[in-house]
Amino acid sequence: MIGRVGRKGISLVSELGELTLFSASSLGSLFLQRHYFEKLVRSIYEIGVRCIPITLIVGLFTGLVLGLQLYYVLTKFSSESLLGQAVALSIIMEIGPVFTAIMIVGQAGSALSAEIGIQRNAEQIDALKTMRINPLAFLVSPRLYAALICFPILTAMFDIVGIFGGHLTGVSMLGVDEGAYWNRIYESVSITNVRDGFLKALTFGLLTTSICAFQGYFTHTKASIPGARGVSQTTTRAVVLSSIAILASDYLLTSFLLEK
């Protein structure tokens, strides 16, 4: 029993080490290759532009529900006027970065993991090596940098639409004073809150894209079955591990940022 726990622990630490090296090598290799700007733009389109609709839809509904829930909670304390502040701070500091990251993982992260996994199975990664092209630079690094650019931008979009969603429920449907809603946001949301939200988005972008690419890249060693089922296994694992990483790092970052 103790031996098994120990082995699992060592394997976990070793995998974390591999993941760190993988991410660092990928980050360091973007500018060592040719045509990196073109690859970066394509990756921004894949990770960023394609995720805009889902981010806006989820942001809107999150804001609508949050406005509704918080309105009924605040009514109990006769504090409906605080609705704008509650909605904005919840979204900017917590819900925006977390939900956006989970949405991007579902849409772009799973696709990234599956694509690289299939490329591994089809020997395309080996083909790159035989052509003396660095596979990490070619396949992974543009995606990592694109994630660092896109996650904060999509989070900002989510925040804005979410706050408008809260406005739609609170002000347009439930009769909260519009001036109070916007004024509370203006008074309570500081640049530090926005910065903390973006810091979380950057962290989630780096973590989730690394995990998804890592799982796909090593599908031949990580999956228990080779071939298509192996790719399906590592893609599922990529999404699950990314979601856990988002929530775990969110807790750590929140603890750290609130203490400051």
């Binding site: 089809a122 020997e123 052509m131 092209i133």
Partner: peptide, 19 residues
Amino acid sequence: ALFDSLTVFENVALPLREK
């Protein structure tokens, strides 16, 4: 081991274009 998302021209050009 051809790249599915690249055309025949792009596949053939890949090693030269990158290196």
